[in-house]
Design a protein around this nucleic acid. Sequence first.
DNA 1: CGCCAGATTGAGGACGCTCAATTCTGGTGG
DNA 2: CCACCAGAATTGAGCGTCCTCAATCTGGCG
Lengths: 252, 252
Amino acid sequence: VGVSEALRLFVRRLEIRSVLAAQERAAVLAWPEQVQRFRANEDVIRLGDTVDTVCLVSDGILARVEQLVNGNRQVTALYVAGDMADLPSAMLPHASSGLVALTEATVHRIPHRHVLASADSLPGLARAFWRDCVVDTYIIAQWLLSLGRRDARARLAHLLCELSCRLAGDTRGQPVINLNLRQAHLADALGLTSVHVNRTLRVLREERAALHVGRRFEILDWDRLAAIAEFDPAYLHLNREETAAPAALRPE
Amino acid sequence: VGVSEALRLFVRRLEIRSVLAAQERAAVLAWPEQVQRFRANEDVIRLGDTVDTVCLVSDGILARVEQLVNGNRQVTALYVAGDMADLPSAMLPHASSGLVALTEATVHRIPHRHVLASADSLPGLARAFWRDCVVDTYIIAQWLLSLGRRDARARLAHLLCELSCRLAGDTRGQPVINLNLRQAHLADALGLTSVHVNRTLRVLREERAALHVGRRFEILDWDRLAAIAEFDPAYLHLNREETAAPAALRPE
DNA sequence: CGCCAGATTGAGGACGCTCAATTCTGGTGG
DNA sequence: CCACCAGAATTGAGCGTCCTCAATCTGGCG
């Protein structure tokens, strides 16, 4: 029987940060799922919804969105292919923020009860999920540092570095970020206006660090961009060595 | 044998958001701990440290701190009595941010191996820890919304509302925030300068919403302050009803 | 070829920052 | 009990970054 490509990708993602036993891998790959397509700007989860599934992104890009009454939006997380967009909802099913498809996207829905059953019966998986949620927290903490203390140029550079690394799954990012993101989307994530994102991209282009052409972003000089951003990929925990220690503690 | 008051407080905190079985409660209360005192501004965990204990705060206030090379600080989380300040470190023991005592503080250190052993053998506890980390993420997401889209006045109002609720353990906060916090500490958390925090406090004082006297903050008009902040305490998950659903799914 | 969303550019204004001077507070020692 | 001191709070003046509100330009698509 065919196992979904999306689940395989998800398992590969988990294994970047956690050591999984064969049994644990098999449990995840056996999850049932329901595939949904979303158009750009379509809501995946509306604020206040109570959900009973998690959303595995297999294509496109989703954003967690918070909003003020004046309509000002703030994106608090971006999810790309292979990310479990709302694993936290398995713990707290009442959505305290919305989930939106920024581009056309394919989402695989997996019922909470299967995720929870796997976590309860296989402590190694429970840790892997917990660990992934912790990394999400580290990512948001870095965004908070950006919004609080970096100027627009460094903020933008940092986000580009982060996305590049997450897509590559490596501490040195890939040179092309092909996510079909608009400048307005970056603005929502960076706490800026799209006008200022545009001006800031021009600065990065003029110093030959990165540029935006068509619907992709290209990193021209990784070292320069990382220097501007003061980017240190350690917080993404993309190499397993640092997380090896707790695995050694796991019960045999 | 005497069980530490700090652990009792921590269990009570867990039980705000999770339903614990007697066995689970007992496991936590049996954890060994080592008490440490810190002075104001003393590091609890330095950036880059590899830790093998978690820090339960029993007195005072700790902050998770990120820093840029120019010395600009951003506080990404505040921990008060009863909070497990770095539960995430149980998953990723290599600290990607520092932990600092903002005031004199008492910390109870509990070895990771006891926390992990409890989580592995009692799935309900694993969920409780995971759930608490998820709430931490929601809190940071709200801070991100503040830094990205709220002006200084709303940002400050929101933080005061949040601290007030967290201290009270209730969705309507307590009127006095007695944490011995300086204006500079608020500035570090809000992405502002202490000068501007001061001016902003004056505004809130003039509109009779909140004020800072001596070493405490006083909320004069909760409704007004919450309106300024657009504060909705749902994200703190301080009432158990919303989290009851997943508990019902737990294996008997 | 016309249309439209998104990108780009300009001009002016506001919010928060920097740098400094001054006042206030509470803790200390005489 | 009071004088003193250090750290914190408060206030002022000037400036810079980013915002607002437009107008114009561009590229992809029908």
